[in-house]
Design a protein around this nucleic acid. Sequence first.
DNA 1: GTCTATATTCCGATAGAC
DNA 2: GTCTATCGGAATATAGAC
Lengths: 190, 190
Amino acid sequence: MSARNPDTKAEILRIGKQFIQFYGYNAFSYADIARELNVKNAAVHYHFRGKEDLLMALIDNYIENYQLLAKQLQHSKITAIGKLEKFIEPYSCLCESDSICIIGSIASDYNTLPESVKAKISALIDLVMGMVEQTLAEGKKHGELHFSETARTQALLIMTNLAAGVQLARISGKKDYTIIRKALIKQLKG
Amino acid sequence: MSARNPDTKAEILRIGKQFIQFYGYNAFSYADIARELNVKNAAVHYHFRGKEDLLMALIDNYIENYQLLAKQLQHSKITAIGKLEKFIEPYSCLCESDSICIIGSIASDYNTLPESVKAKISALIDLVMGMVEQTLAEGKKHGELHFSETARTQALLIMTNLAAGVQLARISGKKDYTIIRKALIKQLKG
DNA sequence: GTCTATATTCCGATAGAC
DNA sequence: GTCTATCGGAATATAGAC
């Protein structure tokens, strides 16, 4: 049975991410992941010693992906609104699959997590917020985007609209998320 | 030991609410509640057969309280902005105690809950959203509040700012919540 | 790298005494 | 109304075979 699937580790991360977004961090077990991948829970423990280690690796993945996106956006000529769409699109995808963003999900379980994870999720938020803030500032400078608050405040308003928007949509319907997304963009375009 | 504390039921609800807001629904047990109240977990099961029943009762409480608030506001002469403060204040309190609102907390665990609870939480959201929407509409009609969206859309924007605002504050600091709250009110006052 | 098997702990829940 | 006692089950985790 050795090395039957060299990508099990990546698969575990994929399923773990899905479960956190769909059920919540404290609502799934290694057995759930194992069942999904047709392996035993011992195999999951082999790749990630404990659930916290899996969560850490997952957040690391997010950080890497956003750092990659940051580099791509830096050397591209797309408009500020185009860049913003890059930040909004993941939320729209989550909404479609009745899932919520990993930060919102983890926020609920935050006080049950070890300090190491808390610090990591904080770093992820700083990274994303910084990127959105910068995009907003650029768009405003070029006259492409319109808002009266500071870029940082506006970023906070937009990201909380999106995060809670997908949470609300899960309960009261996807239409509410769509209303929020469209209103956001409309206001930014002035 | 009989009837030693006639208010145990209310105490269980109080602690349960606290735990949901602080740790999340799937992260605390009846044993945790029992420990806090210095009773045994069997006593908790006596008052609420299962965890879902406790959650249902808790949401019922919220609905009753908001219905009460609705009646109070209806016959009062306070301004629209004053009414809005009534909706915002609970979020500020939650933020102070590193807690998040029950709807945001439950949203994370939503896909692990039975249909009965899902319907109940949906009713709570309808109630609160309706009240906020009405308050916004009144304030706009009287020239007291200013916003370009429909009252319903504006209510969605505000409530998602608040809900995710307390979630974010838990991770990145209370200052972010304060920024959001002040920006909201400033914009509404035009 | 994955398995079987097992240890431990905890959880939700109930029966029956007081 | 609360207790003791206990059950079945699930979760986290590890040892050791393959």
